[in-house]
């Protein structure tokens, strides 16, 4: 089977065949892959290089922990990859992005307003939770399309707080508003 696997900005083509071999971007490796009774712990001998990792499924990604670092990995088989490509939903950083509350808390401040241009890393929301003020930042450049909360509001986990859109889509949006 052939898979398209994305980690951060890297994409790999991984082919798995039946005789304990895999092809990664065309390069062949011997594998000995062992799940363990410990649930999410997996052992892999990759050309005899020993790797241990924790692998867990999340909503539409996999989380992999190796030597202290946590990786978010997207695995698509050929069919899913083609479908996603056709729909234009292959992992990218354009299109609308919702800023979502990562935990319940209280909005301390909203330093942006609708229509404002933001750059990647700009503070968008200041959320108080776990006895700390936490800054939520813009994941990319764009324009603030909607602000759903105001300072003082209590929010739940996964609540949408701010919508950031493409700068060029701004014109269409302003007609609605």
């Amino acid at each position: 089977m052939k898979y398209f696997t994305t980690v951060g900005d890297q994409q790999y083509t991984i082919e798995i065949d039946h005789d304990n071999k895999i092809l990664v971007n065309g390069e062949r490796y011997d594998i000995d892959f062992q799940p363990s009774p410990e649930g999410s712990v997996y052992s892999l001998l990759l050309n005899n290089r020993s790797l241990e990792g924790l692998v867990e499924e999340r909503e539409d990604t996999w989380e992999v922990l190796i030597r202290g670092e946590l990786y978010e990995v997207q695995v698509q088989d050929e069919r899913a990859f083609r479908l996603a490509k056709a729909r234009g939903t292959v992992a990218t950083v354009s299109g609308d992005v919702n800023i979502i509350s990562p935990m319940p808390g209280i909005i301390v401040a909203v330093p942006v307003s609708e229509g404002e241009h933001v750059s990647k890393g700009d503070k968008v929301i200041i959320l108080e939770s776990m006895k700390m003020e936490n800054e939520l930042r813009a994941p990319r450049d764009g324009v603030v399309r909607r602000v759903f909360v105001q300072a003082g509001a209590g929010v739940e986990k996964n609540q949408t707080l701010v919508l950031i859109g493409d700068p060029d889509a701004q014109g269409e949006e302003s007609d609605e508003a």
Partner: peptide, 20 residues
């Protein structure tokens, strides 16, 4: 530099494959 991207990709793919 997170140094184990490739390893993470292979592990996740093998687990996904097995589950599939």
């Amino acid at each position: 530099e997170a140094p184990h991207q490739l390893d993470a990709a292979i592990l996740a793919t093998l687990v996904a494959h097995q589950q599939g």
